[in-house]
Structures are given as structure tokens and as C-alpha cells.
Amino acid sequence: MTRAPPLAIVFGALLLLAASLAALTLGLRPIAAGEWLAILRDGRGSEAAEIVLGLRLPRVLLGAMVGSALGLAGAVVQMATRNPLGDPGLLGINAGASLALILGSDLVGLAGPQAATWLAACGAAGAVLAVQALAGARGGADPIRLTLAGVAVTALCIGIGQAIALADPERFDLVRNWRVGALSGAADAVLPSLTAAWLAGTLLALALAPRLDLLALGDDRAASLGVAVRPTRLGSLLAVVLLAGGAVAAAGPIAFIGLAAPHIARRLGGIGAVAHLPLSGLIGAALVVSADTLGRIATPPAEVPVGVVAGLLGAPILILLARRRSAAA
């Protein structure tokens, strides 16, 4: 609050820049340094320029937006619930969004991919409400109850989704991408609605940052400092629903980014929300763009979906964090 460390933010931005450059350069058809110069000089026209600007750049933009949304949403969840293991996925938000997409896939077929973002956001909101109701009215006062409720809602959503998908193989194919989490299936068409949700969620989260800093001190202390606790927590959840819902609609539920990005950001940039939230977003974006690049170049010509790569990378991080915490306790 007093002295936000802009250095960490610059570092996060550089990290994202490096990840994006790697994503634009690497792939089945690597771009050589000379070709880069040609693209920068002549713009579109060449084959390399088409690959970089036409194919890879939209995907990098999508990945950065999805990743920053997940990283930011994770940081907000962790601060608003005072649960260091908070993550949109662990709270059932991703699974709720997926289920809404599975249930409403006919609707998406009719109304077009624009509807997917809003449908997913509604599913995420439904999951949040269900988790809140199961955990008790106080809204995240007890991290353990909240986590248990999240696990239960996630299991329920996945169960229903699988039952529907098994009964209807065509739908199964349609929603496979969403459930795994991939950037390849997402059309340019979802970008406008994703951008709208992303902007609204990001602005709301950043506006709430000073209050989130006080919520971290406990509900009573926050209230004694003039924070309206319940509206702040509801606003945080709305931001999470917009961010995570938009991300899931565009790319499916990508696990662990929401958990890992804020933890990495905390190591880099201290604990004030004004710096922590944007840094978590930048780290999340860099993670998703990197994971997607890895998935593209790992087993050519096939692609490993970004959700799978994120899971493979994120699981060890989660185990490491859990071990550190238990060692410290």
C-alpha cells in the first residue's frame, strides 16, 4: 500500500514478453531471426508472417488473456477467503462453468460462440452460490468448509457432465475441448465477449485491491477499518466469476494456474494487493502461454492441450507448496 514494488511488475511483464516471443517463434515451423526482421520490416505477406501474425499471435493473445484471468481470479479467491489454497478450480468454479456449457451446448450451437462466455459465467456463478450455500452463510469464514464444499460441487458437476456426455456421443465430442482445457479449439469469435468479461473482472478486482488487503487481516479488523465486508466479498466473487467464467468459456478449465500464479507472485512481489493482483495476472499469463507452447512442440505434429500441460507442471508445484507449508507449521 505504501510502497508498491513496481520492479516485480516489470519483471512479470518481461516474463510474459519472453514467453510470448517464444510462443511466436517456436513450433512445427520455427521462425528464424532473419524472418523476424523481415516480418518487422514488411509486415504481412510472407509465409512466416502469416504463421506469426495470423496463427500464433491470436493464440498468444487468447492464452495471455485466459492465463491472466485465471491468475488474477486465483489471487482474489485466496485473499477474499483467506485460503492460501484457494483457486477457482478448487472452489468448483471451473467445473460449474463446464457443466453449464455441456448443458447449454445446443444453445451455443444456435446463438453462436458469444453465448458460451456468458453461459460459462452463469455456470461459474451457480457453482459459487452452491459452494457458499454448502459452506455456510458467512461466506468463506472457514477455509476448510469452503474447500470441502468446493470439492463436493466439483464432483457433482463432473458427474452430471459425464453422464450427459456418455449418453450423447456427439455432445461428448463437442465439449471434449472444454473439459480438457485447450487454446486450439477456441475460435476468434469468443474473443470479444472474453475481452468484455476480462476487462470488467480485472477492473473490479483492481478496484477492490485495497479492501482485499484489509480482509486479509480478518473480517472484524477489516470492518473496524471501515470496510463493508459482505459487499467486498460479494464483489470479489463477482470478479472471480467474470474472470474464471470467461477463461473457461474460451479455453476450458485449465487447472492449477489460479493456484500457482499467486504463489509465485507472492515470492516475487511481497504481499500488498495493489502489486500482488496485477503480478499474479502477469505470471498466470506467462504460465499459460508457456504451457501452450510446450504442448505444441512436445510431440509434433500432435498437440498436447494446455490444460494437460498445466496439470503436469502444476501438480508438482502444488505438492511442493503443501510440503513447504507442513514443514513450516
Partner: peptide
């Protein structure tokens, strides 16, 4: 008011 039950984020300094 100083309520009971101090909670503070890990790593916070006194001045912060």
C-alpha cells in the same frame, strides 16, 4: 477497535 484473533498475511512488515 482491536478485536481478538490477530491474522496477518505472511511476511507483512510492521510499517505495512
Amino acid at each position: 477497535v482491536l478485536p481478538q484473533g490477530a491474522e496477518a498475511p505472511e511476511g507483512i512488515t510492521v510499517v505495512d
